[in-house]
Amino acid sequence: MLPIRAEAVSYAAGGAAILDEVSLTIAPGAPMLILGPNGAGKSVLLRLLHGLLRPEAGRITPAAAIRGAMVFQRPVLLRRSVLANLRYPMALAGVSRAERLRRAEVALAEVGLSALAGRPARRLSGGEQQRLALARAAALEPEVLFLDEPCASLDPAATRAVEEIIARIATRGTKIVMTTHDLGQARRLAGEVVFLHRGRVVESALAERFFAGPASAEGAAFLQGELLW
């Protein structure tokens, strides 16, 4: 699957341009954080890369229907047990029955939900739900995992738990591509940064370089907290 290349990708909705000739390459390595103010087009870019949306111009390779796995800002859990939620996408992906069970157990242990395997998934707390969504995606053992603001609606403790899980998934060799508006989180997780502003990639750099001193004025303003949209 990797590298995934976006070449001059544009996208518009309702006549308004959301992305304008975005190019980037997702290669194996440390997590890629897509940063930018609200309305920059981060979520749309993630959906294009994952394959949920089709670019209106430009192209994304490889040309698979769906690339990697994805976790949404608000986890979409099936109205089933925790365990059944884990198994469902694996069954769709053609994972054998025994392997499904094995991976589900491992994933549940990893996110600390083993004791809740039989619970209705939608009765879990917000943090537990997001951990389950992460476990569900990780159990697919994707080469690349897209995360769209996974901690946006979580309290600090739940956020830390989720960050730990993300870091662990990353060290196993899964490429993380994640959007966030939380600069602290970005500093903690990022290996590389793509800075998006008004639908354009303004900067693309290693995390240390970006946080040490952005090359662009917009990047600098964003780090100062002065770039609101």
Binding site: L52, A65, A69, L78, Y88, P89, L92
Partner: peptide
């Protein structure tokens, strides 16, 4: 409406 994106993401 709630499930569509997730299910498509799973390749359903």
């Amino acid at each position: 409406e709630e499930y569509a994106e997730a299910l498509r993401s799973f390749g359903a």
